[in-house]
């Protein structure tokens, strides 16, 4: 499960727990998630709604909103490239509003959201928002920042960037808005880009353009990308490594080829079978996963997937929780089928 090639992963999440304390009870949105993000690769985090994938991303950036908070675990960011013994920083231990975290957020780690319309302020021009970001992280003049912003818009393929800089987000189409969002996230040269459902609100042809752009920028800048999505097609096309989440836990992690061609966890297998494929035969019934995702207040005991699992073992799966353990050098799975309790 350690990333190949010996290089230390750029980010290591260990036993992360982010809980939301509400009057009705506690929602354990992320409940003991562990995974590594290999350097200069694309890691996909997949899962259905409520699996905790977005909260994981927000925990990494320390922007979890109240009543949520990180109650346990560590998020180790290795800041110095290459030399192995570099200084790491545990993001989970930082003050979310403190100077260091503010430097990391936007500086070391950039973020792009699902809905670019709500991520831009409607009362400031796109240019002003990008310039503000640049000046927050770099000590440059407005003119230099403006030049940099124009350059960034050009880099992400926005035509006539000088003019677009003075427009508002609502004047841009969905595809252009998402490009502007990417330009803003990349303006301070982050080494990690977290993309939370970056193409979900877009049409397929626009989605293809944005995915191409992300790939191209990764090659050029040598970025690490954490791609959060529910679309397994996007994962198959973009990612090197995949983390599958279910109800706040990582159920499987491995290289993309292994996840799609040799999945181990019953949930991963069922999820892959149930997706409608463009390659399928016309008008056929799809295999389904029995039941639906449990309500967050009624988390099942033991393995969270056991009530829907075809390989449920009474007395084991409903009693104790499995942990993520390696099945081979690269792939790990959290299931008693592979690691008897």
């Amino acid at each position: 499960m350690t990333s190949e090639g010996g290089a230390a992963p750029i980010l290591s999440v260990r036993d992360l727990k982010t809980h939301f304390f509400q009057d009705e009870g506690t929602v354990r949105a992320v409940d003991g998630a562990s995974f590594d993000v290999p350097r200069r690769k694309t890691l996909g985090i997949v899962g259905e709604s409520g699996c905790g994938k977005s909260v994981t991303a927000r925990s990494i950036l320390r922007i979890v909103e109240r009543p949520g908070r990180i109650v346990g675990g560590s998020i180790l960011l290795r800041r110095d490239a290459g030399n192995g013994q570099a200084g790491g920083v545990d993001l989970a231990g930082l003050d979310p509003a403190g100077y260091e975290m503010r430097q990391i957020r936007g500086g070391d780690i950039g973020l792009i959201f699902q809905e670019p319309m709500t991520s831009f302020s409607p009362v400031h021009t796109v240019g002003n928002q990008i310039i503000e970001t640049i000046q927050l992280h770099q000590n440059v003049s407005v003119e230099a920042a403006r030049l940099k912003a124009t350059e960034m818009l050009h880099l992400v393929g926005i035509p006539k960037p000088e003019r677009r800089l003075d427009e508002y987000a609502f004047q841009l189409s969905g595809g252009l808005r998402q490009r502007a969002m990417i330009a803003m996230a990349l303006s301070c040269g982050p080494r990690i880009l977290i993309a939370d459902e970056p193409t979900t609100a877009l049409d397929v042809t626009t989605q293809a353009q944005i995915l191409d752009l992300l790939r191209h920028l990764q090659d050029r800048e040598g970025m690490t990308i954490i791609l959060i999505t529910h679309n397994l097609g996007v994962v198959a096309e973009m990612c090197d490594e995949v983390v599958v989440m279910y109800l706040g836990r990582v159920v499987e992690q491995g290289p993309v080829d292994a996840i799609f061609h040799a999945p181990k966890h019953p949930y991963t297998k069922a999820l892959l079978r149930s997706i409608p494929s463009i390659q399928a035969t016309v008008r056929t019934e799809l295999p389904t996963i029995a039941g639906s995702i449990p309500h967050p207040y009624n988390r099942p005991s033991g393995c969270p997937f056991h009530p829907r699992c075809p390989d449920f073992m009474p007395g084991t799966c409903d009693r104790s929780e499995p942990s993520l353990r390696p099945v081979d050098d690269n792939q790990g799975v959290s299931c008693f089928l592979y690691h008897p309790a």
């Binding site: 042809t205 626009t206 989605q207 096309e237 799609f260």
Partner: peptide
């Protein structure tokens, strides 16, 4: 053809050369 090509296929072994449409609708 372009629409079919743009749909991401859920199989990493099929990462083909996609037809990416320029411009917008």
């Amino acid at each position: 053809e372009a629409l079919l090509s743009a749909v991401p296929k859920p199989d990493p072994r099929l990462r083909a050369h996609r037809i990416v449409l320029e411009g917008e609708v």
